[in-house]
Measured scan of single mutants.
Amino acid sequence: EINVTSHGEEQAKHWIELAKRMNLDVEVEIHGDKIIITIK
């Protein structure tokens, strides 16, 4: 399980695309200006 804290939408999209390509599950939480991505 990987937790990524992203401070930008572009960076977040990059991680989500990467996870989808690798067929991994992704959870995205938004806390103000921080985007927390959990890849399982």
Rank of each mutant, 00 (worst) to 15 (best):
6 S>P: 06
23 N>Y: 14
11 Q>G: 06
26 V>K: 00
10 E>K: 06
12 A>R: 04
32 G>V: 11
35 I>S: 01
34 K>A: 07
1 E>F: 11
18 L>M: 07
9 E>V: 12
30 I>V: 06
9 E>F: 14
22 M>A: 03
21 R>A: 13
11 Q>A: 11
20 K>F: 15
33 D>R: 03
38 T>G: 01
22 M>Q: 07
22 M>L: 13
22 M>R: 01
12 A>S: 07
3 N>T: 11
23 N>K: 07
10 E>S: 10
17 E>G: 10
7 H>T: 08
21 R>E: 15
31 H>Y: 12
17 E>A: 09
32 G>N: 05
36 I>P: 00
30 I>W: 05
9 E>Y: 14
29 E>H: 09
2 I>F: 10
25 D>R: 14
30 I>G: 01
16 I>Q: 03
19 A>I: 13
37 I>P: 00
17 E>Y: 12
8 G>R: 11
37 I>Y: 01
4 V>S: 06
37 I>H: 00
8 G>K: 06
34 K>E: 05
23 N>H: 08
6 S>Y: 09
30 I>A: 02
19 A>Y: 13
29 E>V: 09
7 H>G: 06
17 E>P: 14
11 Q>R: 09
39 I>N: 00
13 K>Q: 07
8 G>L: 15
28 V>I: 10
37 I>G: 00
27 E>I: 12
18 L>I: 09
7 H>P: 07
4 V>R: 03
35 I>P: 00
40 K>D: 02
16 I>V: 08
6 S>Q: 05
19 A>N: 12
40 K>H: 03
16 I>D: 04
22 M>V: 08
28 V>E: 00
40 K>L: 04
29 E>Q: 10
19 A>W: 14
31 H>N: 06
32 G>P: 11
27 E>M: 10
28 V>H: 01
13 K>W: 12
37 I>L: 02
5 T>Y: 03
10 E>V: 06
23 N>R: 11
12 A>L: 14
5 T>A: 06
27 E>Q: 10
29 E>P: 00
4 V>E: 08
31 H>G: 02
31 H>R: 10
38 T>R: 11
18 L>T: 05
10 E>A: 08
18 L>V: 06
23 N>V: 15
16 I>L: 08
27 E>G: 04
18 L>P: 06
33 D>M: 11
27 E>Y: 13
35 I>Y: 03
13 K>F: 12
33 D>V: 14
13 K>H: 06
19 A>Q: 05
5 T>P: 08
37 I>A: 01
38 T>Q: 02
13 K>R: 07
40 K>W: 07
11 Q>V: 10
22 M>C: 15
39 I>C: 06
33 D>F: 14
20 K>P: 14
38 T>H: 07
6 S>F: 14
40 K>A: 03
38 T>D: 01
16 I>W: 15
27 E>L: 11
32 G>D: 11
4 V>Y: 04
34 K>P: 00
11 Q>I: 12
24 L>G: 01
40 K>V: 05
1 E>P: 13
34 K>T: 09
20 K>S: 13
11 Q>K: 11
13 K>I: 09
27 E>N: 06
13 K>L: 09
9 E>D: 12
3 N>D: 04
1 E>R: 02
25 D>T: 15
25 D>Q: 12
31 H>C: 11
15 W>I: 06
35 I>M: 02
17 E>C: 14
